[in-house]
Design a protein around this nucleic acid. Structure first.
Lengths: 376, 376
DNA sequence: TGTTTAGTAAGTAAATCTAACTAACTGAAT
DNA sequence: ATTCAGTTAGTTAGATTTACTTACTAAACA
């Protein structure tokens, strides 16, 4: 099954020789999978130029069943229907903060039902649901241990959502889910060892190691917000952007950029505009001295953070994502230069190019965790 | 086989029910393993109190074959014969630097032959050889890519050693080998996610992740000597202890401790004694102000280094090893305190208690990499 | 002597193999 | 145009492998 997913339109004979199993065995399994609807076959137009019977081209049936992917973010909850190839068929979203104190789980479940109705999907066509949550999550038991943005502590999200949706639900940390998305459909497709670093209100890291998602002993791996890139600054009372945020969070998170910018400005200027991180990046590109100083500080901390994760893990590549990363393309060469000054090994660093990477990753989470013929 | 190794003296029936395979199948396999000498059986003294036939107690035969473990260090090469339980049966060593320009590989092979002769082992009784090398090593191809301490670059150590010893040889980085040793016989026995950090002339980190040794994309994972714990200091020209050494190497390595101590001393004092790191640790414990300052700086950099690896990897525990770690027991509480000040998650930190951990780990490397019934 | 537990023997079931077949095509000689 | 050797795809049939179930014997206890 895995081979067919990754190799469209091969014949039974191809599969037999590629997987080194006999032709009859392949035929038996293929017949069974055809019966169950997981694959399709199509007679080939042409035979090989050297003659022979025309092969039947076996293909994965990406519409055998569908997946719902959910990405719970600080500002909005994104919901999508995906097919088995990871294509987003339809999307919707709802405001997070407006619903945080209003039974958010039920609101999300309702919106899922609504999205399915709108697109004329029956619940029976849905294989299951994958959810990315901005917090530390016990994946085995489906419990959100701590997600301050949505005010969840020890919430059995999996169980509650399964009760509402009547289908399998899997839950994981949002950064891990983004890493899964990059692994399935992004720059990490061909790699077994890479890191996904998301820059949003804080900083997080998803680790694909030895061909597996690594979650840590207590599901806290990749929480690099607590990393210290400047021990003298860390020993002083540094300015935590939010309570509970770590040193690196408070230096490379989006809000921390704004906060640092405001500190450099007069009171009048502070109020005159809406100071988003994105705007400060643009000002820096346009040559504004204050903005440049703030951004340079940000870049420096980010670069040393990257040096530290790379030096520990020696990944094939590092992919940057999250809201702040959208402004980062222009500054990437500067980051890479700093890193190369300190590290003898070369590591490819890029900014994510996948749209809806978290939704796709949430779908992949389901495929990965749920026991089925499609288990990856 | 794996079950028998971990469960001494169980009966065929025990094995069948524990592994959920039928009794006849267990009997067949057990007979085969007995035939081949991998296991032994012994009639039990007593039957169960509720009656029944006396069981045959099946045990792993730890002397079915033997392993040679080699640890190549900067000062000496340690060589040991191990049985399959990881017990060191006999040891020898030779001086590294004296032989570095004198065909070190051949010297080691000769010493291995000598050790075997001395203990009346035949080459046929040796399953293979595992070697830990202080440098970056391509384990797949058995090539030492870069090991400055012994002046090796792109040395096909595996192939050359196999030619000399006529048995399977496997090669890996010394820190990885130490981690394997802790995994087999040390504090990591029951854990699937832990780190082994060795403090010697530099600092290195072996990673056991998701129940597997992680070596990185280019075998450079855990080379945390390049980590930066103080970005301001790193941006200045800091004092590299040895050329090619990284920032953290130059702050927590044994020689760096000596170097920093000497800088604080007058010329007369510098020459008056042999300033080892161990001695400076002792002086600090005895209250010497200069030594205390040097050691505190060391501890601070080490603690922040630990914070950074823990925050990325969230291991079950961190084990400290290497020459410098012998002096560390007294200072461990101080390190743990610093870490807990910055990290909300708790991680167990200890100093290795296993003797010959690298030799044992080298043996485990062979068991892990070599295709045999004992493959772990 | 009946009960309990360990281990063996014989037959069964499932899965996958090999070998030989049929099916269907190409292309060159007739 | 027809024929046929060569080639590739896929199927059928029987052999092999592997581990299972059932039913047995062996050896203990009380």
């Amino acid at each position: 099954m895995h081979y067919i997913q990754n190799n469209e339109g091969h014949s039974r004979s191809d599969i037999a020789s590629a997987l080194k199993i006999s032709k009859p065995t392949v035929s038996n399994i293929v017949d069974e999978l055809l019966e169950e609807g997981w694959i399709r076959e199509k007679e080939s137009e042409k035979a090989s130029s050297s003659g022979g019977r025309k092969p039947f081209q076996i293909s994965f049936n990406e519409n055998a069943t569908y997946i719902v992917g959910i990405d719970i973010g600080g500002t909005s909850v994104e919901i999508a229907i995906l097919n088995l190839s990871g294509d987003v068929l339809s999307k919707t979203n709802l405001d997070t903060q407006a619903n945080v104190d209003n039974d958010l789980i039920k609101q999300i479940a309702d919106r899922v039902h609504h999205l399915l109705d709108e697109n004329e999907f029956e619940m029976e066509q849905i294989m299951g649901v994958g959810i990315g949550v901005p917090g530390i999550t016990d994946v085995e038991n489906g419990i959100v241990l701590d997600a301050p943005t949505v005010n969840w502590r020890d919430v059995p999200l999996q169980a509650e959502m399964e009760k509402l949706l009547h289908c399998p639900v899997y839950v994981d940390n949002d950064v891990n889910v983004a890493a899964l998305g990059e692994w399935w459909k992004g720059a990490g497709k061909t790699d077994d060892n890479f890191l996904m670093i998301t820059l949003g209100s804080g900083v997080g890291c998803g680790l694909i190691i030895n061909g597996d998602l690594y979650r840590g002993a207590t599901y806290a791996a990749g929480e690099i917000g607590y990393m210290v890139t400047d021990k003298n600054a860390a020993e002083k009372e540094y300015d935590q952007t939010f309570p509970g945020y770590g040193f690196l969070d408070s230096h490379v998170g989006g809000p921390s950029i704004t906060k640092r910018m405001l500190r450099h400005l007069g009171e009048a200027e502070q109020k005159s505009e809406d100071w988003s991180a994105e705007k400060i990046f643009e000002m820096a590109m346009d040559g504004d001295a204050t903005a440049k100083k703030v951004i340079e500080d940000f870049l420096s901390h980010l670069s040393y953070g990257l040096i530290n994760v790379i030096t520990i893990l020696n990944p094939q590549q590092v992919i940057l994502g999250g809201g702040v990363s959208r402004s980062l393309d222009h500054f990437l060469p500067h980051i890479i230069e700093t890193i190369q000054k300190h590290l003898p090994i070369h590591t490819n660093i890029s900014v994510t190019k996948v749209e809806d990477v978290s939704l796709i990753g949430a779908g992949y989470l389901l495929l990965k965790e749920h026991d089925s013929i499609l288990k990856v």
